[in-house]
Amino acid sequence: MIEGDRELSAMVQELWDNDVNRLKPGTDYRISLQGKAGYVRSMNDDQDGIGFPLFSFVDENIFKKETFMAFISLLDNYESDTGEPEIVTPEEEVENHKFLDSIIKTPTMKIAHKYLVEKNLSPSDLTAFKQQLYRIWFELYARRGSSRPDSSGFEHVFVGETRGGRTVIGFHNWIQLYLQEKLGHIDYKGYSVNAHSPQPDENKHIMALQFSWKNGIKPKGSIFIGVSPEFEFALYTLCFLTSPNERVKVSFSLYEVEIVCHHYNQKHIGTTFPILLKYQTV
C-alpha cells in the first residue's frame, strides 16, 4: 500500500470508529442475501430468481435522528431521468443547507474537516467549508448528452438516476434503497460477486448487488449498508479532495476497499462508491 493510502486508511478508520449513528447488523437491521444475481442487460432480460426483498428488517427509530431526518427529506427533490433539467426550489435549497448544518456537527465531519484544513484542501471557517461542500455535492451540472443542468453529485450518488428510462446510474445509498424497496419501487435481484471479490456477508457493511428501480435496471451496484449519512458524506468528500487518481485503496475495520470517486469538471462529484476487495482476518 502506498504511503498516501496508508494515511487515508488511518483517517477512514477514525471516521469509522466515530460513526456513532451506524446501525448494527442483525440487531438494528437484517438483510437477506438470497442468491447470486444473473447477467442482466435490460429489464426485458429478467433473470430474477429472488423472491424476497433485500431488507427483512430495519429499526426505523434511527430515522428520527437529526442527520437521517435531514437526509431523507432530500430524497424526493429530484427528477430521476437524466436529460430532465433539475429545478431547485427555495424550499429544497433550505433542505440542502439544513442537511449540511446537521452533518457538520457530527464527529465524522469534524474529523474530516480538521484533516482537510491541515492539508490546505478546505477552509477552516465553517461557513466557507459548508459552501465548499454545497458546491461539490449540490451544485447542478449537465451530464453527458444533456444541454441543461440535470444532475448533481448528491442526486447521482445518494438518490439515483435513470438514463433513457432503462438504465439505473448512481444509486449507491442503502437508506434510499430500503425506502424505495419498502414502497415497492425496488426489485432486488441478488448479490454480485466476481473472481476477485469475497462472498458477501449479511453481518458486514458492504455489498454489491443487482436491482431494478422504476423501469430501469442496475446490473451491478455497490453500497455501504447501515452506515450513517454523515459517514458516507465525510468519506467521499475526503476521497474527492485528497485523491486526484479517482481510485484509492483503503483498509479499515474488517475491510479492504477501493473507493471510486470520479470528478466532474474537477469541481463536482460525478460518482463515488465502495468496491469491496476483501475482508481482513482478525
Score class of each variant (00 low, 15 high):
Ser192Phe: 13
Leu277Glu: 10
Glu3Ile: 13
Leu74Lys: 00
His113Arg: 14
Arg41Trp: 10
Lys24His: 02
Glu202Ser: 15
Gly4Asn: 15
Phe158His: 03
Ala208Pro: 02
Val168His: 04
Ile269Ala: 05
Thr281Pro: 04
Asp48Trp: 08
Ile72Asn: 05
Val12Lys: 00
Phe154Glu: 00
Lys36Asn: 01
Asp59Ser: 09
Leu75Cys: 13
Leu235Val: 02
Thr27Ile: 15
Phe138Ser: 02
His97Val: 05
Arg41His: 13
His268Cys: 12
Pro53Met: 06
Thr167Ser: 14
Leu241Glu: 03
Pro25Ser: 11
Glu14Asn: 14
Ala208His: 09
Lys105Pro: 05
Val117Met: 05
Tyr39Lys: 08
Arg22Leu: 06
Ser56Tyr: 05
Gln176Thr: 13
Ile223Gln: 00
Glu66Gly: 02
Ser253Leu: 06
Pro123Val: 03
Lys278Ala: 11
Glu93Ile: 06
Arg247Pro: 03
Val227Tyr: 03
Ile169Asp: 04
Lys110Ala: 11
Gly153Trp: 01
Ile62Thr: 08
Tyr236Ser: 00
Ile72Tyr: 11
Tyr279Leu: 09
Tyr236Asp: 00
Ser102Val: 05
Leu241Asp: 02
Lys214Cys: 09
Asp81Asn: 14
Gly270Thr: 02
Phe99Thr: 02
Asp19Ser: 11
Glu95Asn: 15
Lys249Ser: 12
Met109Val: 08
Asn245Gly: 14
Gly221Tyr: 04
Tyr39Ile: 12
His262Ile: 07
Cys239Glu: 03
Ile169Glu: 03
Asp48Gly: 13
Lys204Leu: 09
Arg144Ile: 08
Asp59Ala: 09
Lys218Gly: 08
Leu23Asp: 03
Phe158Pro: 01
Glu118Leu: 12
Asn120Phe: 12
Tyr264Phe: 11
Lys36Gln: 14
Ile169Gly: 01
Gly226Ser: 10
Asn18Ile: 07
Asn44Glu: 10
Arg166Asn: 12
Val88Tyr: 04
Tyr78Ala: 04
Gln266Pro: 00
Val58Trp: 03
Gly51Phe: 01
Thr167Ile: 14
Ser212Asn: 01
Gly216Tyr: 08
Tyr115Gly: 01
Arg22Asp: 04
Ile87Asp: 03
Asn215Gly: 11
Val282Asp: 13
Glu60Ile: 14
Gly164Ala: 13
Val282Met: 13
Ile223Ser: 02
Lys36Phe: 09
Glu118Val: 06
Ser222Phe: 03
Ile72His: 10
His205Met: 12
Leu126Pro: 11
Phe171Ile: 03
Arg6Tyr: 14
Ile87Phe: 11
Gly164Gln: 08
Phe52Tyr: 09
Leu179Arg: 15
Ile104Gly: 01
Glu256Leu: 13
Arg6Thr: 14
Gln199Ser: 09
Leu75Gln: 14
Gln176Asn: 15
Glu79Gly: 00
Tyr236Asn: 01
Glu246Asn: 09
Ser151Val: 06
Gly165Asn: 05
Tyr264Ile: 09
Ser197Ala: 13
Val260His: 06
Lys110Thr: 12
Ser152Arg: 04
Ser56Gly: 04
His205Asn: 15
Lys110Trp: 07
Leu277Met: 15
Asn21Val: 08
Ser251Gln: 13
Gln180Asn: 10
Glu118Ile: 06
Asn265His: 12
Ile104His: 02
Gly221Cys: 08
Phe233Gln: 04
Glu91Leu: 05
Asp81Trp: 00
His268Tyr: 15
Lys119Trp: 05
Lys189Gly: 05
Glu139Cys: 02
Gly153Ala: 02
Tyr188Met: 01
Val227Leu: 12
Asp187Met: 06
His262Cys: 01
Tyr191Phe: 15
Arg247Phe: 12
